[in-house]
Amino acid sequence: MSAGTGKLDVLVTDIKPINTLVKRFQFERADGRPLPNFSGGAHVVVEMKDDDRMRLNPYSLMSSPLDTSHYAISVRRDDQGRGGSLFMHNQVAVGDRLVISYPVNLFALDLRASKHLMLAGGIGITPFMAQMAQLAANGSNFELHYSCRSRSLASYAQEISAHYDHRIHLYYDDEGQQIDISTLLSGQALGTQVYVCGPRGMIDAVCSQATAAGWPDQAIHFEEFITPPTGKPFKVRLARSDKTITVGEHQSLLEAIEAAGIDAPYLCRGGACGQCETDVLSCDGSMLHNDHWLTEDQHASEKKIMPCVSRFEGELLELDR
């Protein structure tokens, strides 16, 4: 495989429903040894063999980096999605074997910070769970603001409040509560780093308000894994491999390339890491870019595409792959 990571054979040792939408999965290493160490903010890519289809989805590790006897992830069910979360919810059982990647961290803490200010929305809470465990263990200064739709859907809110007490601030949409981002950002001491993980609107709001308030880019961190969007099937010519493939409605371009037996590079599969960047040789139609990696100019130039999340509509797309 072309992921720059090794693979781990794991057993599913626990599955817990957290609320009506979210389940927590616990993995242990199949050979009984401890899992590799990792840093808060890291994710793993879970391989799902669903009949003849192979899906690989990234999930943030939420268990404590100080305890490598197991890893835990949380999966939010998406009934409209491409089926990865449904597969995890409906088909995976305790005792199953899975293959996951080594941890990769694209959302690392800046350990120079005098304070870590964290903003989470919904399932975006998971990387912060691991980061808070890491920071609490060495007495670092952090504060988490967590916004959820409702009390009943606030995954882990009780648990972290009990654990970290006044460092946790909760906001419930259905009770009319909202994080006051600008006030929050303006009251911070020099040396504070801000981290945001959640829906795109929240990430955009935090990033733009922080920038407007004069925060340097280096002090603003965000992570959003885009799930590959579905869309109309399209044809792609892979010039180097001399193959023409069709990308299905529920398939990503990267998955279609892999299904054709071609070893293509990737790391995050969510438009964030840059590993899958591919040169476009010709494009008769329009590209539907969905990544965070390429610049707007690069998107407009139609010379590059990120096959993990981006699609195409038109006659034919030709790639250097």
């Binding site: 990571t5 090794g6 840059g274």
Partner: peptide, 11 residues
């Protein structure tokens, strides 16, 4: 630099 940033654990 791009290569180094992407070096992963165990590799």
């Amino acid at each position: 630099l791009k290569f180094l940033l992407n070096i992963q654990q165990g590799r």
